[in-house]
């Protein structure tokens, strides 16, 4: 008894010490700052995600809302049921159509990300290397299109690309072509739409990376006999890699799930997962299946990307 009470006394003191240390170790200011985005993510990402996940485990029904309840209870007969339906996920795996759609979306997103990088890099480079006073102007020119509705700008592209649109009229009048080119309702138009729409998301991180680069490194390379193109590939490009990765992710992730651009500019044969999701939701009225498609897209595509990104962040901290 005395021993146990003695050890209790010892423990008490130790835990008190631990609490004291913990209290000192916690950086309350930092916690407060992290709590804001954490809360935001919780409310606007995590909770909706759980809701969608819950729906994906139910069955569709002709009712309001149009899916079966997960919990059911009956007070008179005193029973409660808890039902999970994994059928939607099984169906996703069984049917190649969804795999095709995922692959096709990834392909379209990857190709457009590549071209966005190709177009965005020189622009970001130019802005970063121009006079500081001019930079502000150039940067605001990049951001300016955001002031107009995205939908309107996509419609403007329809005007450019259609059969008797501006591009064809110009090419016909200059005699470069004698038959109008079919550009609208093709994958080509989708690529143009995505590259155009997401270009600022590529330019801004690239610009930040290029702008903070130490220019004396280039001078040193030149002194050591490096030609400009060598300096570019050996110094500028490697230093811009974090910007390249950030820009590519900012373009690639939303492009995979893009719905509006392929719907307006793409042809009927442009298969993208956003469209499949729409069909499940609106044509089949199968909210559970649509939810499953969305969850799988998130898990298969976004999660690995986030993990890679996370690992990279840690590496950077270590080095």
């Amino acid at each position: 008894m005395s021993i146990s009470s003695g050890s209790a006394w010892v423990n008490k003191s130790a835990s008190g010490m631990a609490r004291y240390n913990l209290f000192r170790r916690v950086n309350w200011g930092r916690l407060g700052v992290i709590a804001v985005p954490g809360l935001w993510l919780g409310i606007f990402f995590f909770i909706p995600f759980l809701v969608v996940f819950k729906i994906s485990l139910s069955e569709s029904a002709i009712a309001v809302p149009p899916y079966s309840a997960m919990f059911e209870w009956n007070l008179e007969d005193a029973y409660a049921t808890f039902k999970l339906n994994f059928g939607n996920y099984l169906y996703l795996i069984e049917d190649d159509f969804y795999l095709d759609a995922y692959i096709s979306s990834v392909k379209i997103a990857a190709v457009s990300t590549f071209f966005t990088l190709l177009v965005g890099f020189p622009i970001a480079y130019l802005i970063a290397r121009s006079k500081p006073s001019l930079r502000v102007v150039l940067l605001s020119l990049v951001i300016l299109p955001f002031w107009t509705s995205f939908l309107l700008r996509v419609y403007a592209w329809m005007g450019f690309l259609k059969k008797n649109g501006i591009v064809n009229e110009f090419l016909l009048s200059t005699g470069i072509i004698d038959q109008p080119l079919i550009m609208l309702q093709t994958d080509f138009a989708v690529y143009i739409g995505i590259v155009y729409t997401y270009l600022p998301f590529m330019i801004l991180p690239l610009y930040t990376a290029l702008e903070k680069m130490d220019l004396t490194l280039l001078e040193a390379a030149e002194d050591l006999g490096s030609r400009p193109y060598q300096s570019f590939f050996l110094i500028t490009l490697p230093l811009a890699i974090p910007g390249v990765i950030a820009g590519c992710l900012l373009v690639f992730i939303p492009a995979v799930g893009e719905f509006v651009i392929p719907a307006l500019l793409g042809g009927s044969d442009t298969l993208m997962i956003g469209r499949v999701l729409w069909d499940e939701f609106f044509l089949n009225r199968d909210w559970p299946m649509a939810s499953a498609v969305a969850i799988v897209m998130l898990v298969v595509l976004v999660l690995p990307i986030m993990l890679i990104r996370n690992a990279q962040g840690k590496e950077e901290v270590h080095s």
């Binding site: 569709s60 002709i62 298969l271 499949v276 069909d279 089949n284």
Partner: peptide, 19 residues
């Protein structure tokens, strides 16, 4: 019926995308 709607939507995607 919901089952037929599913077949129909699939057939339609099949027609549209040529897959």
């Amino acid at each position: 019926a919901a089952k037929y709607d599913r077949l129909l939507t699939r057939a339609w995607s099949n027609i549209k995308t040529g897959r």
